[in-house]
Simulated scan of single mutants.
Amino acid sequence: MLERIRACLPSLAPAEQRVAKLVLNDPRVFASLPVGELAEMAHVSKPTVVRFCRSVGYDGLVDFKLKLAGSVSEGVPFIHRSVDMDDKTGDVMVKVIDNTVAAFLKYRNDAGVGAIERAVTVLAATHETGRRVEFYGVGNSGIVAQDAQHKFFRLGVNTISYSDGHMQVMAASMLRAGDCVLVISNSGRTRDLMDACDIAQRKGATVIVLTASGSPLAVAGNIHLAADHPEGYDRYSPMVSRLLHLMVIDILATCVALRIGGARLQPLLQDIKDNLRSKRYT
């Protein structure tokens, strides 16, 4: 929300810019004060405060302050960053969905296509040569690694996932040139994953890292897929970050499937579907 206000700042009228700067200077105070005090602090009229809220895309001051309070709240540890202790179920639902959608849209607008393209090229080339694609992650990211393995093995890719640090080190030790590893981490600071990256690169494998920018892991691989969301890895359970990682995996799998081509994939997928039919109730 604060990023949206910063982006809108140059296009606002001078009086509305003063209100915007008041918000950016101390959003918590802004969310708690009545309109009269806000107008006085920004040296504008009360209607100008309301106009500013509408100029940046909200229904009015009440709607703006409600969402502002949610966006800057410290939240409930290990639950969700924007949720407050006294939120009702409906409030929680709206906040969790809004936070997730906003993160997805921000990723769509900010993501570098070049890194995705390079990762897809490596993954597709690894599949063509029949070499290994391995997915590493621990904790929540280990579950994402399993999801990635599930998506890629259905494309006929020679793949496996590991969520145990010792297994990752052993598996990385057996890689060689032409293999590929995709390492997933919310914090980008897990020692086991860093060790596995170093070993995989020494063995000649291409290492793709899906993690936060500025983390040690971000510079440990050959290709960095940035997935940035302000979710403190030491305080909050990575909810939205995990969903971002799953979305990136979906993008990679879809692009690789297109590279492989429908003529090759359709018979394989149809065979899988036919063989699973007996596992379902009619």
Rank of each mutant, 00 (worst) to 15 (best):
Leu265Tyr: 09
Gly60Pro: 07
Thr206Pro: 00
Val120Leu: 01
Gly90Gln: 09
Val49Glu: 00
Ala119Gln: 01
Asp26Pro: 04
Pro267Leu: 04
Gly139Ile: 06
Leu66Glu: 14
Val96Thr: 08
His127Gln: 15
Ile160Phe: 12
Leu2Lys: 10
Asp26Val: 07
Arg277Tyr: 14
Arg28Glu: 14
Glu134Leu: 14
Ala39Leu: 02
Ala263Asn: 15
Gly214His: 11
Gly156Cys: 05
Tyr107Thr: 09
Thr211Gly: 00
Leu193Trp: 03
Ser187Gln: 03
Thr282Ser: 13
Asp110Phe: 09
Cys255Gly: 02
Ser45Ala: 15
Cys180Met: 02
Glu128Val: 08
Ala102Trp: 10
Lys65Phe: 04
Glu37Gln: 13
Ala220Val: 07
Glu74Trp: 11
Val209Met: 01
Glu40Val: 08
Ala7Trp: 13
Cys180Phe: 01
Pro14Asn: 06
Gly214Asn: 07
Thr206Cys: 03
Gly214Ile: 06
Gly75Thr: 08
Leu68Pro: 02
Phe135Pro: 01
Arg264Ala: 15
Leu105Tyr: 13
Arg264Cys: 05
Ser278His: 12
Asp87Cys: 03
Tyr136Gln: 03
Ala115Asn: 11
Lys279Gly: 03
Leu155Gly: 00
Ala171Val: 09
Pro10Glu: 06
Asn186Met: 07
Ala200Gln: 06
Thr254Leu: 14
Gly142Tyr: 05
Asp234His: 12
Ala145Trp: 02
Leu225Asn: 02
Arg191Leu: 10
Val144Phe: 04
Ala42Trp: 06
Ala148Tyr: 05
Asn158Lys: 11
Ala7Asp: 12
Gly232His: 05
Ala13Arg: 13
Pro27Leu: 04
Val256Arg: 02
Ile143Thr: 08
Ala103Lys: 01
Asp250Glu: 14
Leu268Glu: 06
His245Thr: 03
Val56Phe: 08
Gln149Cys: 14
Val157Ser: 00
Asp26Ile: 05
Leu33Val: 07
Asn109Arg: 14
Asp228Ala: 03
Asp147Glu: 12
Gly214Met: 09
Val96Cys: 06
Cys8Glu: 13
Phe52Val: 02
Leu225Thr: 00
Arg280Glu: 08
Leu258Met: 10
Gly165Asn: 08
Val101Ile: 13
His43Glu: 14
Val183Cys: 01
Leu68Met: 01
Met1Ser: 04
Gln149His: 14
His245Cys: 05
Gly114Phe: 10
Ala20Cys: 05
Ala42Leu: 07
Ala119Cys: 01
Phe64Lys: 05
Leu68Ile: 07
Asp86His: 14
Tyr281Ser: 11
Ala148Cys: 03
His80Lys: 09
Gly188Phe: 07
Gly57Pro: 00
Arg28Tyr: 12
His127Ala: 08
Asn25Ser: 11
Leu24Pro: 02
Met93Ala: 12
Gly90Trp: 13
Leu217Arg: 00
Asn158Gln: 11
Arg131His: 15
Lys65Val: 07
Ser241Trp: 07
His229Ile: 14
Leu269Arg: 12
Leu268Asp: 03
Asn25Met: 11
Leu22Phe: 06
His127Cys: 04
Val169Glu: 11
Pro27Asp: 05
